[in-house]
Nucleic acid binder design. Structure first.
Lengths: 226, 226
DNA sequence: GTCTATAGGCTGATAGAC
DNA sequence: GTCTATCAGCCTATAGAC
């Protein structure tokens, strides 16, 4: 963004205050950039005001002129993390056919989680208060919009008459989301299941959710297929 | 456990050392009991040697006579947590019919996670190194055995000829596990999806995994139903 | 705006007296 | 075995000089 001069020559009062404003915003941005780097490299717990100040080559006290406290930095990083997450889902969400779209979005979800583990951690695993706040207090934020993209799959299926009358798109979206989240977070926090890669698990999850257990035979309980 | 006397009268050397041994074990047990309480109440991060020492009314240094360091306490708590988890799954695992068993175990899994959030956190969400170690280095530990119980559902289905020839019980178990883990961990770390309770999500997850999307119509991609 | 200096916490862990 | 005392380090946040 280029500064707009408010007086004709040499800048002047407005020019100076604008430059200051710009420099201030730049420093703020730099702090966030470096903070993000630290979180991505060493995890969220390793983000400390001292180390951050060192890294941007300012005194710790200076950080407090730009952010109220450490939490404010974390919150900002979290907001941006949700933005990146949404951006990662969007290409897949443009696929026409709902089932293909579901597969594409699921793949994008898992890929994002594996490629940006610390970002994923930050927004979904780190601080319950933070992510809950961001979901609840910003209905138009990137978090809710990401969920809406996924819910769209099931809404479209239902609108096309391809789902049962009493099927709940929201609930199906939540179940799918939970499944994907489970795959990613098991890989991130407990790499216990070595037998199957996350991508394979994701493919199996979607396929099984859509079509049921492969080749299932036998009597079905009364309340099934509702 | 009642002490067995090795000499006939008044106790004697062996009796004294046994009493000491017993007292030592009792203190160790008390430390773990209090540590568990602290973790359950305030979270794993809040477990500090000083506060723990305060709570058991010993000096901090005393703890180090019973545990090498803080990690050793965490590891012990984790092992016991897996034990509790396994115990929670076992009743459901005794159900005869595989599909009913799946439902019972899924319900038990989610119930355990919601009723013992801090234990669940400790064993599945807290420290990747810790739980991974416990899974990998103790193939007969409670963690792997829990997974084996779940895998049994799909092995039994396949053995009964109720699944496709090329279906992988292990993979289906991993997918199911991931789904359940996702439900619990979303509730614990990001209570964003308020619309549906964890129990409802769990029921929908199992039903959808077993039978597919409710009333799905439309052409299926070639590779489906494999 | 930026600095130095520091307050006032917390932490895990240990040396050495008793 | 248990204690006191303490080391050595981390942390967030702020007061006050420049």
């Amino acid at each position: 963004m280029v500064a707009v001069r408010k007086v004709k020559s040499y800048g002047g009062v407005m020019g100076i205050s604008e430059r200051k404003e710009r420099q201030r915003a730049e420093l703020r941005e730099q702090i966030l950039r470096v903070a993000r780097e630290m979180v991505v490299k060493e995890g969220f717990g390793a983000l400390s005001m001292r180390k951050l100040a060192d890294a941007v080559e300012y005194a710790p006290a200076t950080l407090y002129l730009h952010f109220e406290n450490r939490d404010a930095i974390a919150r900002e990083l979290c907001v941006r993390g949700f933005g990146e997450f949404l951006a990662a889902l969007e290409p897949g969400a443009r696929v026409k056919d709902p089932l293909e779209r579901l597969m594409a979005m699921a793949a994008a979800y898992v890929r994002f989680g594996l490629e940006h583990p610390e970002t994923y951690r930050l927004i979904f695993l780190e601080d319950a208060r933070l992510s809950t706040e961001l979901f609840r207090d910003a209905p138009d934020g990137a978090g809710p919009r990401s969920f809406a993209l996924l819910a769209g799959v099931f809404e479209d299926l239902k609108a096309a008459g391809r789902l049962a009358e009493d099927a709940s798109p929201t609930r199906l979206a939540e179940v799918t989301w939970a499944g994907l989240h489970g795959i990613v977070s098991l890989k991130l926090t407990c790499a216990a299941f070595q037998e199957t890669t996350a991508e394979e698990l994701q493919a199996s999850l979607v396929e099984t959710l859509v079509y049921g257990l492969p080749g299932l035979k036998g009597e079905k309980p009364a309340r099934a297929r509702r």
